[in-house]
Amino acid sequence: MTSGNPTRPGFAPFGRAALFGLALALGSVGGAQAQTEILNVSYDPTRELYREINAVFAEEWKAKTGETITIRAAHGGSGAQARTVIDGIPADVVTLGIPSDIDAIAKISKKIPADWRSKLPNEGLPYTSTVVFLVRKGNPKAVKDWSDLAKPDVKVITPNPKTSAGGRWNFLAAWGYAYEKEGKDKEKANAFVGSFYKNVPVLDTGARGSTVTFAQRGLGDVLPTWENEAFLVLEEFGKDKFDIVVPPTSIYAEPPVALVDANVDKKGTRKQAEAYLQFLYSDKAQAIFAKHHYRPIKREAAKAEDLALLPEIKLFKIEDVQGSWDDIQKLNFDNGGLFDQLSKAGR
């Protein structure tokens, strides 16, 4: 480094700036305290949810064990988050948007056992969700059901199913709807999804990007999205701007959680991470899920007013029509899958 020469006053600023920078750097290192930390790598829409869950869990853990625990959170597109776990982010638990992303971690990195779905209650699902429609106030295009989303004059905003779990649920929901309606004809279901994506002017990389495009930028007539995300938009952008339309049937969306075995054993955080995942099944956490408009698996733990907002709709499981998650992923979203074929045909 070029040290400041006292006879050359012009260089003093360099030395000072460097010292200043160094001081700040040291300050940041000193700021990190030694305490137990666990990292929850999650998908996009759960930011608000886990902020509350993490605070409540830390408090409970402190009361129970006397140990101070910090739960770090990382959010992003579900696929991108799975990739960071594969590439070595020290996640203790993953809470992702779709089972195939956790399968990918298990398969590629072996950091999660292949039978992860049997390790926790309800196949690793502390809550479920579904896809509903967000429309502009008064529903000017009269969107009522999935079939309306394929009409030529309706513009649909949905994220890229390649990068977003929400985008994949939308895709599968549209397909499953058409499959049921067309008398279990796969070709017709494929064609329906094709015309659905012809109505999409913007494919954002994540569910959050699509919401911003629809709500803030004013593009499109309908936003099929996670139920919880639709309610969040009403709260954040104002109930006077949008309506939620609940279709008669929709998909049983499964955002699963799992322990990253290889990482917790290495970090010595298995006890805390397991307790954290168990906590998600506790009455307290279940009530928080309902409060954030996710569907708790223990309805009795949630407040009645929260449950009232989650209407009974006919939900179908995509595994029942397309088979295992391996098949679902391969058939629809892998390179050369249905989505690729449709976008190629639709150009």
Partner: peptide, 8 residues
């Protein structure tokens, strides 16, 4: 980055 809040 990995987008870990408060860390990266």
């Amino acid at each position: 980055s990995g987008h870990i809040r408060g860390l990266t």
